[in-house]
Simulated assay, not measured.
Amino acid sequence: MSAFFPLAIVVVAGVVYHVAQKASGAVSPWPMLAIAYGAAFAVAIVMLFARGGDARLPAARDCMAGLALGLAAFGIEAGFFFVYRSGWPLASAQVIANLSVTAILAITGIMVFGEHLTAGRAAGLALAAGGATLIARG
Rank of each mutant, 00 (worst) to 15 (best):
V15S: 01
V15Q: 01
Y17W: 10
V19Q: 05
A20L: 13
A20G: 15
Q21V: 03
Q21L: 11
Q21T: 08
K22H: 10
A26R: 07
V27E: 09
V27K: 05
S28R: 12
S28L: 11
P29M: 07
P29T: 10
P29Y: 04
P31G: 04
P31W: 02
P31L: 02
M32S: 13
L33S: 12
A34P: 05
A34F: 03
I35K: 02
A36G: 03
A36P: 00
A36R: 03
Y37M: 10
G38N: 03
G38C: 05
A39M: 10
A40Q: 06
A40Y: 01
F41R: 01
F41M: 05
F41H: 08
A42Y: 04
A42G: 09
A42D: 02
V43K: 09
A44N: 06
I45W: 02
L48E: 10
L48T: 06
A50N: 14
G53H: 10
D54T: 08
D54A: 07
D54Q: 05
A55E: 09
L57D: 12
P58A: 01
A60M: 04
D62S: 14
D62P: 02
D62Q: 07
C63I: 14
M64Q: 04
M64K: 14
M64P: 00
A65I: 14
A65N: 11
G66Q: 09
L67M: 06
A68H: 07
L71G: 06
A72H: 12
A72K: 11
A72I: 06
A73H: 03
I76R: 09
I76L: 13
E77L: 01
F80M: 07
F82M: 08
